[in-house]
Amino acid sequence: MYWITVLVVAVMVLSALAVLLLPNLLAAVAASSVVSLALSVVFVIVRAPDVAMTEAAVGAGLSGVILVLALRRLGLWGLGDDNRPQPERFSGTGDDA
């Protein structure tokens, strides 16, 4: 049990670092869903099934959907490695993406 806990916490912290460090925003969203999934396992380990269930529902379904819909609406796809410049609809910026 001890080593499982250590591993889950390590996965959680590593993916939290990945959220900040991954250059691609969609990958960061995937990493943040991994954070909340590991967090839900941690909540089960600390005997909080209610909280684990809320975190599972929110992290697995809701938060990812909201983030992805917002990102899609932003249209900022590339932001990093596989960058593909989007046509800019706004005048006078040029500093974007």
Binding site: V19, L39, L71
Partner: peptide, 29 residues
């Protein structure tokens, strides 16, 4: 958007911290 993601990560840490205050080993749900 990454700022919003970071806010979510910090919030997760705070939540875990709060839950941990009630945890003790060998206890049940």
């Amino acid at each position: 958007v990454r700022l919003v993601l970071a806010l979510g990560v910090a919030e997760a840490g705070g939540n875990l911290l709060l839950v941990l205050t009630g945890f003790r080993q060998g206890a049940v749900a």
